[in-house]
Design a binder for these strands. Structure first.
Length: 736
DNA sequence: GACCTGCTGCGGCATG
């Protein structure tokens, strides 16, 4: 460390921590480590540490924390866990466990890991003699409260630090609401406020993230954001055309074949990640690339990696990525997006428009992690062949424009802002049951105080909370004692008694796919598969030998042909800013330098269609079967517009960029839009009441219609945004 | 026209 200016942070570290840094061979501290040390050591404020993957975030938090704890250790710590690290993935905990033990061990600090696959002996030790650092998942923390609620005070009574890893992965989700409640309950058990440190690579808005980290106290958090220059980024968007004529049976689609050919030529000698947007697409490309490798007689390997593959198959791929001896390319879904350590890959590819800008940033960050090595990203976009019969929406080349809009936003360092408008009533039901189990019953006033008044469910008022308790009573989740105390009811006990209670999210029953006694992965039970079916799975071709419905096992044998299975799933949400950026891109004449020749052609075609149809000045278009409405706004506004038009008796559908109105002319639609725009915006809950199929999260099935409407309105609608949009629409269009 | 995440206690058996 002698070549660099003297480090202030270094001097704050405990001598044994300094020794550890020396042993690591570090030449200097990273800027986030430099800036976080004093803040964390002071132990007053919450701290958000934001910097790229592999830039020393975890150490920025742990070096000062271990320094503080080492001193306290010498003074003789009381019983109790001193630092709690909550992480979204078991694999991340396993990765960090060894490294942290290596640092903390010489300081006399114990390190424990607690998750579903961690040895039970370690968990027993934490309960018996809690101390040191505890690495845990939210679900295991939930289990600790439910099963060992009487020990919570003992375990967390002398807690000094809380760390949340990969904060962005929690924001706006049921799991995030669960985490907030758990951290609040940890502080209740500790009997005091415990400063929180959050780590993340992609945060769009630090204020929102800080407010998520401590509801009601976000303004007091300190933000430590890396200003170290990022490495060079090499980026290309490649365009492809999907021919109108479908391929002969058994032949590859021409656009997919061309993409696979290019991937094979470019990637066969190196380590790469190829992100596809669905598990089915992962299987298709893994198979196509394997076929090409076999035909060429090369030993290049192309392996599939997604959430339905077994742990063994996935770990094999992860090991192969880390192994420098033989290069491989993993075709994957978002499974390889978070921080699981697969080292640095040579390049990243994305097939199809990325789902979100922050996801694209995370994916890009998987390459270019070695000094002097650029981050390489290729995005492959296919659009249908342009001919007379093309649908107006396809002529706009929306996939390409969404891709380019997202790349432009990425370059401007814009990410989807933390959105936490949801009520998370499903997570609230879970927390109410969990607290009742922890304390052997609770009064309604105490539950409201802990969870809503001073806790994370601040958008839930007394009336909604009372309704929720009534709904829970109706379904026997709760029952009330004569003295007013609430206890888990029959159904509540049933939920609490099974281990599936701890997760805040759904899981469905699965068939196990077995080939030669080896479990390849699983498929959901609600998609029955018959013996004899040809299947592509784990990047290889299979025939189904047998289906055992009792044991839920599907047996496979190798085959010559196959098709990917149908996986379940529902669509994602496109942010308002992305749609606005797309609209700007259509009106612009600039041609981004990172487009290849075909992508430029597609860009030109999309802009030509945009102007030919008159999109620059109009939003409403007549069609044979009805009317198309192009608001150029995010999905929440689209949802809201579709719902209010439906309430006026129109037959409405949503189709990508457009809202379709069947059997209706623009002349009939425009007065409806004008009347909506000039009238008062209705209550969001009234709009939600017009929407069907609103059950979304794990415990939503216990909610009455009114609460489902409230939850849906908060999660999926934007009424002020929709009314601003209606005014634009009313001003913009004369009858056309 | 989507993706991902996670979980216990106990019985039975082998081993030291």
């Amino acid at each position: 460390m002698s070549e660099n200016p003297p480090s202030q942070a270094y001097a704050l570290y405990h001598p044994a921590v300094q020794q550890w840094i020396y042993q690591q061979g570090w030449e200097r501290l990273r800027d986030v480590q430099e800036h976080a040390a004093g803040l964390i050591r002071a132990g007053q404020r919450d701290v958000i540490i934001a910097s790229a993957t592999a830039s020393g975030k975890t150490e920025a938090a742990l070096l000062p924390i271990c320094s503080v704890l080492a001193v306290r250790q010498k003074q003789g710590l009381g019983a109790g866990v001193a630092a709690l690290l909550v992480s979204p993935l078991k694999a991340l905990i396993n990765d960090q466990y060894g490294r942290i033990a290596d640092l903390a061990g010489p300081l006399g600090l114990q390190v424990h890991r607690w998750h579903g696959d961690a040895p039970a002996s370690g968990k027993a030790r934490v309960l018996r003699a809690p101390q040191g650092l505890l690495l845990i998942t939210p679900e295991s923390l939930e289990a600790l409260f439910v099963r060992h609620g009487d020990r919570a005070r003992r375990v967390f009574g002398s807690l000094r630090h809380v760390i949340v890893d990969e904060l962005h992965s929690f924001i706006g989700t049921e799991r995030g609401a669960q985490l907030q409640a758990l951290l609040h309950r940890v502080e209740e058990a500790a009997g005091r406020r415990v400063p929180r440190v959050a780590l993340s690579a992609t945060l769009g808005d630090f204020g929102g993230a800080a407010e998520f980290l401590r509801p009601g106290g976000g303004t007091e958090a300190a933000v430590v954001c890396s200003t170290e220059p990022g490495g060079e980024i090499r980026l290309q968007v490649r365009g492809y055309v999907d021919p109108a004529r479908p391929p002969e049976p058994g032949r590859e689609r021409a656009d997919r074949a061309a993409i696979a050919d290019h991937l094979f030529r470019t990637l066969r000698e190196t380590d790469n990640l190829v992100f596809a947007n669905s598990r089915a697409a992962v299987e298709v490309y893994a198979d196509m690339l394997t076929q090409r490798a076999t035909q060429a007689g090369v030993r290049a390997r192309f392996l599939a990696h997604h959430g339905s593959l077994s742990k063994e198959v996935r770990e094999h791929v992860e090991e192969r990525l880390k192994d420098p001896a033989a290069p491989i390319t993993a075709i994957c879904t978002s499974t390889l997006e978070l921080g699981i350590d697969v080292g640095s890959v040579d390049s990243v590819a994305q097939i199809g428009a990325p789902p979100t800008v922050s996801g694209l940033r995370q994916r890009l960050g998987r390459s270019g992690r070695r000094p002097g090595q650029p981050a390489v990203l290729r995005v492959y976009v296919a659009e249908p062949e342009l001919n007379a019969g093309i649908a107006p929406a396809d002529a706009l080349r929306p996939e390409l424009f969404q891709t380019v809009a997202m790349v432009e936003l990425l370059t401007a360092a814009w990410y989807e802002p933390p959105d936490d408008t949801g009520l998370h009533l499903s997570a609230l039901i879970q927390q109410i049951l969990s607290i009742c189990a922890q304390h052997g019953g609770a009064r309604a006033s105490r539950l409201f105080a802990t969870l809503c008044d001073t806790g994370p469910f601040r958008r839930v008022d007394r009336a909604v909370f009372a309704q929720l308790l009534r709904d829970m009573g109706q379904h026997r989740l709760l029952e009330q004692q004569p003295g007013g105390e609430l206890l888990p009811g029959r159904e509540g006990e049933r939920l609490l008694g099974h281990y599936s209670f701890y997760a805040s999210f759904h899981t469905s029953l699965n068939y196990r796919l077995v080939a030669d006694g080896y479990t390849l992965g699983s498929l959901p039970v609600d998609r029955p598969i018959l013996p004899g079916t040809m299947l592509i799975f784990s990047g290889a071709r299979w025939r189904v030998l047998s289906v055992d419905t009792a044991q839920r096992v599907i047996e496979l044998t190798a085959a010559e042909a196959g098709r990917p299975p149908v996986f379940p799933g529902t669509g994602g949400e496109i942010a308002d800013e992305v749609r606005r950026a797309m609209f700007r891109l259509y009106r612009s004449t600039e041609i981004p330098h990172y487009l290849d020749a075909t992508a430029r052609t597609l860009l030109a075609e999309g802009r030509a269609a945009f102007h030919a149809y008159g999109h620059a000045t109009r939003r409403v278009f007549a069609q044979e079967a009805g009317t198309l409405l192009f608001p150029w706004r995010g999905d929440r506004i689209m949802n809201t517009l579709a719902a209010v038009l439906g309430m006026r008796g129109l037959v409405v559908g949503q189709d990508g960029l457009a809202i379709t109105i069947r059997d209706c002319t623009p002349a009939r639609l425009l007065p409806v839009i004008r009347s909506l725009a000039t009238g008062p915006a209705p209550d969001p809950v009234a709009i939600a009441a017009a929407v069907r199929a609103k059950q979304h999260d794990k415990y939503d099935r216990y909610l009455s219609e009114n609460l489902l409407n409230l939850g849906y309105a908060a999660r999926a609608l934007d009424v002020p945004g929709a009314w601003a949009c209606l005014s634009d629409l009313a001003d913009c269009d004369t009858v056309g």
